[in-house]
Amino acid sequence: MIEREEYQQYIKKNSPKSPMVRTLVAAFIVGGVICCIGEAIGDVLKVIFKAMTEKDVAIWESCIMIFLGSLLTALGLYDKIGHFAGAGSIVPITGFANSIVSPAMEFNREGVFFGVCAKMFVIAGPIIVFGTVASFLVGLIGWFTTL
């Protein structure tokens, strides 16, 4: 029988690989389009609500994008975009919404408490933890530097 090392090398060399050019181009275009939509929403908000501050516009913009991401997930469209775009639709905030809504939908059958509420953060949990820890550390550094 083939040696362990040799077999692993054969598999590494011969396994089918992702088509780099196609996936990168798809991710670039779709990711770019999602960000453009976000920017456009921001611009429209600025025109409609003239009194709104820059900070408020950014918050509302994120909220609308999260809503759109969740809506497309619920309609069963976001996973199709994801199959095509990969990281292009995972990295923007709409992807984050998708990563919370999709397990919530999936585990709906196990009930509200131990299904939806408990399993909602299965995918997004690590992102939230790292986000919180990072913001705490940055806050700590900021606090020390301004002392």
Binding site: S18, H83, S89, N98, S99, V122
Partner: peptide, 10 residues
């Protein structure tokens, strides 16, 4: 989950 928009490896 089925609705998660990730890519399946080849």
């Amino acid at each position: 989950p089925l609705e998660l928009g990730n890519q399946r490896p080849p």
